[in-house]
C-alpha cells in the first residue's frame, strides 16, 4: 500500500498546475482539489493507471465560506436589508459558474478522472474514512484501487491524500469502520 499526504497552510501556493495537463482548468479548482491533484501526481509519478482502475474520492465537510462571504460583501451597503432582487442584482457577479465548480463536492473526483482517463468503478463521497474505504473494498476491481481524499479548512489550510490499495489490504485496515474524516486515513498512514 503506497500512501501520500500533503498539507498546505493558508495562503501557501499549491502547485496544481505542475501536475495537470490542462492548466487553464486550474482556475476552477478549490484548494482541496489542488491539493488532491498534487498528491495523485506525486503518487503516480508519470505512471499511467489502467482506465478500469476503480477510483474512490472523499471530499471534506465544507468549512470555507469565502463565496458566501464575498456575495454578501458586494451587496452590503451597511443597511443589512435583504431582498431577493437586490441580492440578484449585486451578488450575481460573485455567484459565477467558477464559484459553483469550487463548491461541488465531486469536482476533484471528476477533474482527476479526466486527467488520468479513469473510467472504471467509482464513487464520490464526503465525510468519513469508512465512507471512503468500504465502497472501495467492495468494488468490482481485483487489482489496485485508487483512493483519495481532501479537506479544505475554514482558514484556507488544504490537505490532500492519495493511495493505491487492494481490497485485501482494506479488509484488514484498522480504520475500515472509522467515523473520522477520510483525510485522517492519509494523515496517519502516509509512507511516501
Amino acid at each position: 500500500m503506497r500512501v501520500i499526504y500533503r498539507k498546505y497552510l493558508p495562503g501557501e501556493d499549491i502547485p496544481a498546475a505542475d501536475y495537470f495537463s490542462r492548466r487553464k482548468l486550474v482556475k476552477y479548482f478549490s484548494r482541496e482539489t489542488m491539493a488532491a491533484v498534487v498528491c495523485i501526481g506525486e503518487l503516480l509519478k508519470g505512471e499511467v493507471p489502467s482506465p478500469e482502475t476503480p477510483f474512490f474520492f472523499s471530499s471534506g465537510e465544507t468549512e470555507m465560506m469565502d463565496i458566501y462571504k464575498e456575495a454578501c460583501m458586494v451587496f452590503d451597503k451597511g443597511e443589512l436589508k435583504f431582498d431577493s432582487s437586490m441580492f440578484l442584482e449585486r451578488a450575481i457577479t460573485v455567484i459565477s459558474p467558477l464559484s459553483h465548480f469550487k463548491m461541488m463536492r465531486n469536482m476533484a473526483h471528476c477533474f482527476i478522472s479526466i486527467e488520468y482517463g479513469l473510467k472504471g468503478d467509482n464513487a464520490a463521497t464526503m465525510g468519513s474514512v469508512s465512507g471512503l474505504l468500504v465502497p472501495a473494498m467492495l468494488s468490482e476491481g481485483r487489482g489496485d484501487i485508487l483512493i483519495g481524499a481532501g479537506k479544505l479548512h475554514a482558514d484556507g489550510t488544504a490537505e490532500g491524500g492519495f493511495a493505491l490499495v487492494t481490497a485485501h489490504e482494506l479488509k484488514d485496515c484498522p480504520m475500515l469502520e472509522s467515523d473520522g474524516e477520510a483525510i485522517c486515513f492519509f494523515r496517519e498512514n502516509y509512507n511516501i
Binding site: 465531486n106 465525510g127 465512507g131
Partner: peptide, 22 residues
Amino acid sequence: GTNIFMASCAASTQAIGSSYRM
C-alpha cells in the same frame, strides 16, 4: 455507519448501489 455520496446527479444511485453491494 453513515456514508454520504456526493456524485451530483449520480449521488443517490451510487448510495443505493453501494448499499446493494454491502
